[in-house]
Design a protein around this nucleic acid. Structure first.
Lengths: 191, 191
DNA sequence: TACTGTAGAGAACGTTCGTTCTCAATGCAA
DNA sequence: TTGCATTGAGAACGAACGTTCTCTACAGTA
């Protein structure tokens, strides 16, 4: 078994467990047995649990961002690309494993006692906002549109997580379309 | 010291501590000393920590709901009452103690391992959605508007918490106004 | 003054956590 | 076969948790 293979197995397993039960509820022993590695190997790869948490956050950021971008790239027009954000959310919410945004959750759990976690969550959300801003700029929309759509996306995630349904994605998408149309007609009222 | 006075002191103190540091990060001993009561009295009032958590959730629900309604009642027109939701959020976000919605946070922390917490968070959000739906109905808006505004409010809370700023309240309010106007003109295009 | 019930302070208990250590088993070089 | 380095399984450790128990101090009553 490759060394980096072990690392990835640990991170992927930790991601699943932390998502399913919360970070603090999953002990190192449970992670060890779920990942099928020895404690020695675990601590050989990571010096502490908090370093695993940070690696999980990085892994979450990568896979979430790539999944989003893959969905967005399939859309044709700039407006459709903006709306594709909410299609991605809809698919995500329908997964059995969905239990809310991992960054909102980790921030809620550890943000107050771990500056690293708080900062990473902030940067992840910032990166998402930048991404939306780029899509909105490509659509020729005014700058105020992007934060509005980002807030809709965050609200959909929180709502879907707690309600346990995926309705919020559709509702947010419809709201997004109204906001996009309003913003676009404001910038080019004759179009 | 009155018996119910002790209960309330415990709950208020626990609310503050849980909000500031997270529920799992606050031990019974820290709560005991912060509330200025003996462990015996603590366990005389509450049989377990989880019962304190549930009492805190109830307290949060009451004070949040009452605060929201007080702000809403000050607004004149039905549309202004809908927008007042976001004024309430703006004031909340500016408080130093603001660290996100306590129900989103407690759901993130304990929802996966405590059905009671998960259910209470769901009911709180449901109650908020019902409240928005009532305001929207009074404004004569179509039914689809309320969930859209609720999602905006949730997104503003999550965004403000992680970003550490109150900008999201203003952005969400502006988006809400667009959505309200669009929904109202759809139902009475000649008004 | 002597007695009894109550309450507070905090020691103590059992458990669980993150982390480290022990030790036997294994693979490999000579 | 012998010796050595590495590994895995899990025991062990100190700390912290939720919870219970003990003991002391004191209030009120006769």
């Amino acid at each position: 078994m490759d060394i980096s293979e072990v690392r990835e197995r640990i991170v992927v397993t930790a991601d699943e467990l932390y998502n399913a039960k919360g970070i603090q509820a999953v002990g190192m022993d449970e992670l060890r047995s779920a990942a099928g590695v020895s404690l020695k190997k675990l601590y050989g790869e990571f010096p502490s649990k908090s370093s695993i948490v940070m690696a999980v956050l990085e892994h979450r950021h990568q896979s979430w961002t790539q999944g989003l971008d893959a969905t967005v790239q399939q859309a044709g027009t700039p407006k459709e690309r903006l709306l594709a954000i909410f299609d991605y959310l809809a698919g995500w919410f329908c997964q059995d494993s969905f239990r809310g945004c991992g960054f909102i959750n980790s921030f809620a759990e550890l943000g107050a006692i771990s500056p690293d976690v708080a900062e990473y969550a902030r940067k992840h959300k910032e990166s998402f906002q930048d991404y939306v801003a780029r899509l909105a700029a490509e659509a020729g929309a005014p700058a105020y549109l992007a934060p509005q759509l980002a807030i809709l996306a965050e609200g959909a995630q929180a709502t879907a997580a707690i309600a346990g349904t995926s309705d919020a994605a559709v509702q947010a998408r419809q709201a997004a379309e109204v906001l996009i149309d309003a913003a676009m007609s404001a910038v080019s009222p004759m179009g």
